[in-house]
Write a protein that binds this DNA or RNA. Structure first.
Lengths: 183, 183
DNA sequence: TATTTAGGTCAGCCATATTGACATATTTTG
DNA sequence: CAAAATATGTCAATATGGCTGACCTAAATA
């Protein structure tokens, strides 16, 4: 078993592809992404099931919690699903008191979305599970592993959407920090 | 924009959590995993759609191609789905000539699965798309990025399944290399 | 010979997504 | 102000990919 990691580090890239031939696929990263992501999203599933929710609910709650007051349109833009798909899930979470809507102050057509305390608690619990996995993983690796993972994942995102994603994360962090200090 | 990356590298981890308080979630990696994985699996979708296939077909074809002669039971074990779910997809891919079954030599109850040349061509095309994204990403990062990504992803997998996954990848690489040299 | 194993299949259900057609309220524009 | 555009919601039908439960055959094994 110990042999597995050592031998593979050398063999993984047989050689710069012999001119002309299509390069050998990155089987390792392709498959590791599959398995890692499956486990990563699997953690919250048990908890969600107890509430009668699924992954769609998780995603909605997550981003509403991260972006208090987000518009329906922005949420659709992040999730890249249709209004109808969102509608089904959102209606449930509102009627069960995990999310509330407030009329926009400037634009009264908007229904700004907020997690309720109950909603925030669930969102934090789910994020906690995923964070535990991440923390466990990073602890096994050297320092700089967080930054390396972050860089890799950013680079894996479509160039067209990359800046939006980074801006979005930075903005949510800012908001959260401000809210924290206000306590 | 340039500011985004520089500032964030410092601010991301405000401090070792003040004793007692639950640590702040890893929002960045949680969200980057979501966006990165979405784009990663999105690449093959267009191609698959042209063949009337979906992601389920992709997964089946991928692992059959990677593990020529795999048993139905092993495939179920990797995919963690039910026989019935696999059946529907597999039946289609067999009837359309992307996969064939051969009776096991030792155990004639087994139906060993193989990708046909047509199936292999499709599998390689899909793997090529995902590899292109990975290669693009790694090219932007320093050397060692492949290994760092690999380590991170391995560490993100459930400890219980990790060795199986690594063995599985190593075995498939071996087989492939052998088959290559035989040409 | 009896039991277990490998695989297949039918039927019904659920979750999540889609397209397309409309409806309502509000804001913006000519 | 009237007309057009925008933000949101909703109904209906459909596709995909999962699931459980029940039951079947053929082959291996105890």
């Amino acid at each position: 078993m110990a042999d597995l990691n050592i031998a593979s580090a050398r063999d993984r890239h047989p050689a710069p592809d012999p001119a002309g031939q299509p390069p050998e696929p990155s089987w390792d990263l392709i498959e590791l992404l599959f398995f890692a992501y499956r486990d990563f999203v699997g953690d919250p599933d048990e908890v969600l099931a107890k509430f009668g929710f699924g992954r769609a609910h998780h995603r909605v709650l997550h981003f509403v919690n991260r972006h208090p007051g987000i518009t329906v349109a922005s949420l659709l833009d992040i999730l890249k699903i249709t209004k109808q798909s969102l509608g089904r899930v959102l209606k449930q979470m509102i009627s069960e008191g995990y999310i509330v809507q407030k009329e926009g102050a400037n634009d009264r057509r908007q229904r700004l979305l907020y997690a309720t305390p109950k909603g925030e608690a669930l969102a934090m619990k789910l994020a906690g599970l995923q964070t535990a996995r991440i923390t466990r993983a990073l602890r096994e690796l050297g320092p700089g592993a967080h930054e390396a993972a972050r860089r890799f994942l950013v680079a894996m995102i479509d160039a067209s959407g990359r800046d939006d994603v980074l801006r979005q994360i930075a903005r949510a962090d800012q908001l959260r920090k401000a809210a924290h200090q206000a306590r």
